[in-house]
């Protein structure tokens, strides 16, 4: 038994010695993961403790699932779960297909100059900081000087303070996120489209496929594995919804539709100093994310034989 273990250790030693340069390159990333992602996980225990700053993480007393019970009895938390779910669902339905459609449209452009210009214009918003985008949205939608309201006013409609109306929050949030990211995200799909064998299109043309049929029957099925991988990643991030962007856009008047789990954690934990409850909410968030990404991967592997792992 012990000789077996010794053999294994010698084996690992030999592998490390043989490819030490590769392991050296890998080391910084491993260290980063350990220091910044795995070590802080020890702090997750405060989700099950009555955390006191004076007693510290390890000194605080265990309380079991008490914080979770508190959370699930809190209407605001339940509301934030619902909001997270709805914003994610809408963005999955509206924002996820957008880069694919955009990539297909770029691919149909044949005038080189026009194509490049269109692509550049579509990519640019990605490089604008989210703070500036939020600032732009706020000023465009301003009830007094915002261009949207000025146009509405010009055509005789009533001015609206969009950002204080809970009904408008989700469309504004998802619409502006799409404007910012759809172009840049389309690059992945454009790369996938570029990888499709051109003779498939020629063959389809001879077989009688119209432009539309070529997109539907060749391009889309050919980039389906890429779409699925992107979808899995997206589903894994479902509960993450653009935290900073929501913080920048929301206000108490729209909490009803805009307060999501991550903003709830921020307010309760950092502003309200209830670290233990916030950690419990964060842990819940992480567990849901893990279940989502794991299930999406399983389903995708079964249905389409493409998967992340």
């Amino acid at each position: 038994m012990s000789s077996n273990i010794n053999n294994k250790i010698t084996g690992i030693g030999q592998i490390l010695r043989k490819d030490w340069q590769l392991y050296l390159l890998l080391a910084p990333m491993v260290i980063w993961f350990i220091v910044f992602l795995y070590t802080p996980m020890a702090g997750l225990q405060i989700a099950f403790k009555d955390f006191s700053l004076f007693k510290g993480i390890y000194g605080s007393t265990w309380v079991g699932f008490e914080h979770f019970q508190t959370l699930f009895n809190d209407e605001l938390f339940i509301r934030s779960i619902g909001n997270t779910f709805l914003i994610s669902l809408y963005s999955l339905v509206f924002a996820f297909p957008m880069p694919i459609i955009l990539a297909l449209m770029f691919n149909e452009l044949h005038h080189a100059m026009f194509k490049k210009t269109a692509q550049t214009i579509a990519y640019l918003p990605h490089f604008i900081s989210v703070v500036i985008v939020a600032g732009m949205v706020v000023s465009f939608l301003s009830p007094t000087t915002g261009i949207v309201n000025l146009v509405l006013d010009y055509f005789g409609f009533e001015k609206t303070y969009f950002l204080t109306n809970p009904d408008y929050f989700r469309p504004i949030f998802i619409g502006s996120t799409m404007w910012k990211e759809a172009g840049f995200e389309s690059i992945v799909y454009l790369a996938a489209i570029a990888g499709v064998n051109p003779s498939l299109y020629e063959s389809a043309r001879v077989d009688g496929a119209s432009r539309w049929q070529q997109i539907w029957r060749i391009t889309l099925p050919s980039i389906l594995p890429t779409i699925i991988i992107m979808l899995i990643i997206r589903i894994g991030n479902l509960v993450e919804v653009g935290f900073e962007y929501i913080i920048l856009l929301y206000q108490p008047a729209t909490f009803e539709t805009s307060d999501v789990i991550s903003t709830f954690i921020y307010r309760v934990g950092l502003q309200g100093s209830q670290y233990d409850i916030a950690t419990a909410a964060g842990l819940f968030n992480a567990v849901i994310a893990f279940i989502l990404v794991y299930s999406a991967n399983r389903i995708s592997r079964k249905l389409s034989s493409s998967s992340l792992w």
Binding site: N197, S199, L200, E202, S203, A204, V206, D207, R217, I218, P221
Partner: peptide, 10 residues
């Protein structure tokens, strides 16, 4: 109908 060098199968 055309047959291609790289078969061009879908």
């Amino acid at each position: 109908a055309m047959v291609f060098q790289n078969y061009a199968l879908y």
